[in-house]
């Protein structure tokens, strides 16, 4: 396959960036999207140019490091992470636009790399349970109802990639925050911090400069892990309950 790429190039956080066109040839449909970018970077290095910076780690779709808005869609046209997106989703001769996540809370570091540490600070403000560490407790000591376990697991699937923020027209982190709030608040282990968790995490989310939710639904459509939009409804309910109970 022969492709025309238009890649966002930005030297550093302060420099202005532009969409820069590149031609790549000899792309196999079996390559992953990141392997295609590796091919581009090899070519750039051989030409003595600066390779395109992009985030990646496990390349198995489970770590949440990769990002990229491809042709206007976070993680590209398939419902998966960019590393699990294959070039068979594109056609020979296509022009592909590659941009970083766009949100005020995710400043661009270089090219396609953005700083997602705002997510870490949201987690630090309540995305944990306070429990004594040491040997694992007896598994039957705390009974977890099956429906609660299922809900918790569904929301624990969030890998924190930030596609929800990138897809949201308001740059809102509601789906990310709600995934963690619902995950821990559905479990008996999360019950002692049920109120402070949601109040603090929403507070941090607002302080980081993310937008509000307009129930557009773009986040849940973009989410590679299928976190449902109902997650946000549940967090709204938890928030009002916690504000009343404080």
């Amino acid at each position: 396959m022969r492709l025309t790429l238009r890649v966002w190039r930005q030297k550093n956080a302060d420099a202005p960036g532009t969409m820069t066109p590149y031609e790549v040839d000899g792309i196999s449909p079996d390559m992953s999207f990141l392997e295609m970018l590796d091919t581009l970077n090899e070519q750039l290095i051989l030409d003595g140019d600066d390779p395109v910076a992009f985030d990646h780690d496990c390349r198995e779709g489970i770590c949440g490091a990769c990002s990229l808005v491809i042709n206007g869609d976070a993680h590209g046209p398939e419902r998966t992470t960019t590393c699990q997106l294959h070039m068979r989703s594109f056609s020979d001769g296509d022009t592909i636009d590659i941009e970083p996540w766009r949100a005020a809370a995710f400043p661009v570091v270089k090219d396609l790399v953005v700083d997602r540490s705002a997510f870490d600070r949201i987690i630090q403000s309540g995305g944990y349970i306070t429990a004594p560490t040491g040997s694992a407790p007896e598994a039957h000591a705390t009974a977890v109802p099956k429906p609660a376990a299922d809900t918790a697991f569904e929301h624990a699937e969030c890998i924190g990639c930030g596609a929800c923020v990138a897809a949201c027209p308001n740059g809102s982190a509601m789906l990310f925050t709600s995934a963690k709030v619902v995950h821990l608040n559905s479990l008996p282990q999360g019950a002692p911090e049920r109120e402070t968790r949601v109040l603090n995490m929403v507070g941090t989310m607002d302080a980081e400069g993310f937008g509000g939710c307009t129930n557009t639904g773009e986040c849940a459509t973009a989410c590679p892990k299928g976190i449902p939009l109902f997650s946000i409804a549940t967090m709204n309910r938890e928030f009002v309950r916690a504000a009343r109970k404080r």
């Binding site: 636009d97 766009r102 949100a103 308001n170 809102s172």
Partner: peptide, 17 residues
């Protein structure tokens, strides 16, 4: 909220979805 939402997403994508 709208003021905040617009400020939270200052850059548009080159190609819309």
């Amino acid at each position: 909220l709208s003021r905040r939402d617009i400020a939270a997403r200052p850059t548009k994508y080159a190609r819309p979805s």
